[in-house]
């Protein structure tokens, strides 16, 4: 059996391509391969990751054939494994960009929502199919990412949205022709990879941490982070580069 995830690193950008035809369903080998690759990227200092699907789907979620046979404990373990994978994507110390090449459904949508940014091909479709399957998925992430109105619309109806509507809802950041998707995802990844890594990490962490705080505490936290980052070598490099009118070269220190 071939590897269900194709992994590549080019420069500071890593790519994870689900290759489990025809629908790139999530299985234990897929989850394990993704997590191992993320660990490897982290160790190698990869600054931005593109997650995409090979073929016609991004990811159609869990394999319902074997889910039907799961007992309560195994079902719980399955949910935990999915969340551990999503947490690994969300907690990656750099940006993770989902390049949606086709349908992202159920657990596949959740995978996309765990990424920092989503860019879509016109062929992409997104659906939170929990209500169609008698399950609850994506409620926490979608509400935070797109607001309660959008989340209730999509998750209570289970309806499918196309790429253009997803763009209007703020669910994806850009839509391009199908053939242009890899280049577009790469462009977003390169942009984030060129930014100060500690600053990217601090912003990611603050988006999670500060959402739970009263405003005054959130502002105090942000001020503390500003003062911490202001002392870093990368910030000094940014100032030097600005005054010398050149592009900064960040090292993550």
């Amino acid at each position: 059996m071939s590897d269900p995830v194709r992994v590549a690193v080019e420069g500071r950008v890593g790519t994870l391509e689900l290759d489990h035809p025809p629908l790139n369903l999530l299985t234990d080998p897929v989850r394990a391969a993704l997590r191992a690759a993320l660990d490897d990227f982290r160790a190698r200092g990869v600054r931005a990751v593109v997650l995409t699907g090979r073929g016609r789907a991004f990811c159609a979620g869990a394999d319902l054939r074997d889910e039907a046979a799961l007992g309560p404990e195994a079902a719980r373990a399955r949910v935990d494994a999915d969340e551990a994978l999503c947490a690994a994507l969300a907690g990656y110390p750099g940006a993770v960009i989902a390049a949606l090449n086709g349908p992202a459904l159920g657990g596949g949508l959740e995978l996309a929502l765990a990424c920092d940014l989503r860019v879509a091909a016109r062929a992409a479709t997104l659906a939170g199919v929990g209500v169609a399957l008698g399950l609850v998925v994506s409620t926490a992430r979608l509400t935070r990412l797109c607001g309660e109105a959008v989340a209730k619309d999509l998750l209570l109806t289970g309806r499918t949205v196309g790429a253009e509507e997803a763009l209007a809802l703020g669910l994806v950041a850009a839509v391009v022709d199908d053939a242009a998707l890899p280049a577009e995802a790469r462009r977003w990844a390169d942009t984030v990879a060129s930014r100060a890594p500690l600053s990217v990490q601090a912003n990611k962490a603050a988006l999670v941490h500060c959402a739970r705080l009263p405003l005054a505490e959130a502002v105090a936290w942000e001020r503390g982070e500003w003062a911490r980052l202001q002392k870093t070598r990368d910030h000094k490099e940014a100032l030097e580069a600005f005054f010398a009118k050149r592009a900064p070269e960040f090292t993550g220190a």
Binding site: L145, G170, A196, A218, E225, H235
Partner: peptide, 30 residues
């Protein structure tokens, strides 16, 4: 912020627009 190695406007942006958009603006600096 990410272009100069700092962090600013994170807290306000995350309150004014949904998180998906805040992430876009804050992580790319575009």
């Amino acid at each position: 912020g990410v272009k100069v190695g700092l962090m600013a406007s994170n807290v306000q942006l995350a309150r004014l627009v949904p998180e998906a958009r805040a992430r876009d603006a804050l992580l790319t600096g575009r």
